[in-house]
Design a protein around this nucleic acid. Sequence first.
DNA 1: AAGAAGTTCAACCGCTCAGTG
DNA 2: GCACTGAGCGGTTGAACTTCT
Length: 322
Amino acid sequence: MGRIPCCEKENVKRGQWTPEEDNKLSSYIAQHGTRNWRLIPKNAGLQRCGKSCRLRWTNYLRPDLKHGQFSQAEEETIMKLHAVVGNRWSLIAAQLPGRTDNDVKNHWNTKLKKKLTGMGIDPVTHKSFSHLMAEIATTLGPPQVANLTEAALGCFKDEMLHLLTKKRVDFQLQPTSSQGGNMNSAYGMNNTKPDTKEDTVEKIKLGLSRAIQQQPDMILSNKPWELETTNVGATQTHVNGGCNAFTAFQYGQSAFVAEEDGSPWNQSMCSTAGDQLGHLKLEDENGEESEGGKEIRNGSSLFSTDSILWDLPSDDLMNPMV
DNA sequence: AAGAAGTTCAACCGCTCAGTG
DNA sequence: GCACTGAGCGGTTGAACTTCT
């Protein structure tokens, strides 16, 4: 039993709309309104599917639409709401006057996701990668924890590579006093060459392995059955006294600290390892070391401590959230 | 200058939901 | 309660444009 098509597929034009078509649709709707989309193309003299007309109108022709760049405030709203409601684009768009769900969705997919990833935050869960690594660790038995490096890479390799291969990365894997080993000879201090993807992955592996080896108690102590979950507003924060390094990485804290020490990765992806992983320095095109990178600085201002996730008073919403 | 690679965004598709008889 | 229909939603696609090599 097939689904009844919304219109006859033949005799129906598809693809980009022409200015004449836009005019026809706009003037028809101005006169007759938007009742019965199936009849609109026929009556307006358009060889288009009703659904296509509705989309064109709601996403482009509606007079109350904004077409320019998203403002910082709008981006903030999207990110906050996405953390709460997920991919409910229409719900999010309802809070942004003049923006459509399609606009919001596109902006999220092309800009905001990357921005978050660049900050070491998983755009799906809105948790830092280090937090997610900790969660992975809790699902592994002690013998498997040794494989955490591989597991973490499996999960975040794409994100890491995206970030690391887009920017010039200066790995400075600093040895700790307890290590005693000569990290300089192993990795080369101030290795300013980004190398190949494979090299990058190997370096991440080495750093993570070392961190995990040095902190097995911390990772193992974060057992799911010992986790206490508290609700903070609309988001959940895991609280575990023995594993503070992993707790409560939300935008506010993450970005705030990142700005302080200039290395978002140190705080997010690398916070598990802390100093053992060393510092990832981001350099700009001129080879100048940036304080966390341009992207990150923008992110920091976006996620100021004044606008952390759970601080979203319902009064701020344009429309009541369901 | 030209081709390749990456990015953006309008448009489409198929599914679900709500309204109606 | 059921069937049917229109509207709306979110995921995906691909053309156009931009940037890189």
